[in-house]
């Protein structure tokens, strides 16, 4: 064996070391990127909102503001726009109240297993519509669902729907009754409103156009 001239390329030790180095480097890079990303996706504060500081994930008190989703020339896609103050379920929520509400909403979202029918931020199941921008959906804002549920505001209509979804069917495929209470429904709506204010780099694309495009019907077939 020792007399044979052997190439380093067939050396097991060489490949083992290379594998270790490559893996190590990838892990270190991932750690570094993670630190950076975690910083950018931590929730903002109520002060940020008051001072107009943009955060990728705004504070829970974003529920006290009007939210829009509009094309941004500079970034080349749609981004959430946080506007004037508006009441949410008839009141303005303090930072603590809003945080507690969001927490309850997120817990309920998990407890009721929403993600096994819907997608959230595009991840989940494909049996029901994506909820990323549900708060801004034309369906809730053009009078359809407020009409069906007989409520005046979007938040009340959503809460009513969530409590008795199968009483307000829009298609043969219905959302089942998950035993959602009034408090849970309010919290869920807060969770959805907050999610719609997350900067998702333009996903879902052309969502701000969908009301206009729906009028024309689909051109694909």
């Amino acid at each position: 064996m020792s007399e044979k001239k052997v190439s380093v390329w067939t050396s097991i030790t060489f490949w083992r070391r290379s594998a270790a180095w490559v893996t190590g480097t990838a892990v270190v890079l991932l750690m570094w990127l993670t630190f950076n990303t975690i910083g950018q996706i931590s929730m903002g504060t109520d002060e940020d909102l008051q001072n107009g500081v943009k955060k990728r994930i705004p504070a829970p008190t974003v529920i006290n503001y009007k939210i829009d989703y509009a094309y941004d020339e500079k970034r080349g896609h749609e981004v959430p726009v946080i506007g004037e103050k508006e009441l949410f379920f008839g009141k303005e929520w303090s930072a603590d109240e809003a945080a507690e509400l969001l927490r309850h909403g997120k817990l309920t979202q998990q407890a009721k297993n929403c993600m096994n029918c819907h997608t959230l931020l595009g991840n989940g199941a494909y049996y029901a519509p994506d909820l990323t921008k549900a708060w801004l959906d034309p369906k809730w804002n053009d009078g359809t669902m407020t009409g069906i549920t007989g409520k005046d505001t979007v938040e009340e209509a959503m809460a009513e729907f969530l409590m008795h979804p199968s009483q307000f069917p829009t298609h043969a495929r219905m959302m089942p009754n998950l035993g959602i209470t009034k408090e849970e429904a309010i919290a869920l709506v807060a969770f959805l409103k907050h999610m719609s204010a997350i900067d998702t780099n333009g996903f879902p694309r052309n969502f701000s156009q969908s009301a206009k495009r729906l009028e024309g019907g689909t051109h694909a077939w």
Partner: peptide
């Protein structure tokens, strides 16, 4: 100039 990373793709 704004750099548009993800230009629109037409349906067809």
């Amino acid at each position: 100039e704004p750099v548009i990373m993800l230009p629109q793709i037409a349906a067809d």
